[in-house]
Design a protein around this nucleic acid. Sequence first.
DNA 1: GGTCTGACTAGGT
DNA 2: AACCTAGCCAGAC
Length: 115
Amino acid sequence: MLPSRRRPKTAPSTDRPFERVWRLVRRIPRGRVATYGQLSDLVGRRLTPIGVGWAIRAAPEDSLPWHRVVNGRGGISTDNESPGLQRALLEGEGVRFGKDGRIDLDRHGWKPRQR
DNA sequence: GGTCTGACTAGGT
DNA sequence: AACCTAGCCAGAC
């Protein structure tokens, strides 16, 4: 790590936390889901889980499979924005929801192979 | 530059 | 199981 005094003020865009989150989200395969906390860990906690949500919302529309990101209990956190949409998109990929409206993360959770 | 804001989470009651 | 709370931190203004 460079001493902070010598680090460029603006990191290259590929290293910015938002970009890192976006790249990760694009790696989530169809029919699998990741959680905000998991993505936060994967970016080295440079964003908190709530920051991850913000990063995803800030992405250009239709640039990410944003619907594959759910909260840590397998629940949908976007129903204030677009009620029912995320669940419908996931069901369209074969993701099953329990009676409680939650996804079984053991069954559908994304387990990145590397990085 | 300080302040505010979340598509969250873990831990407590 | 259903609340409550503090903590988290990059970006917007």
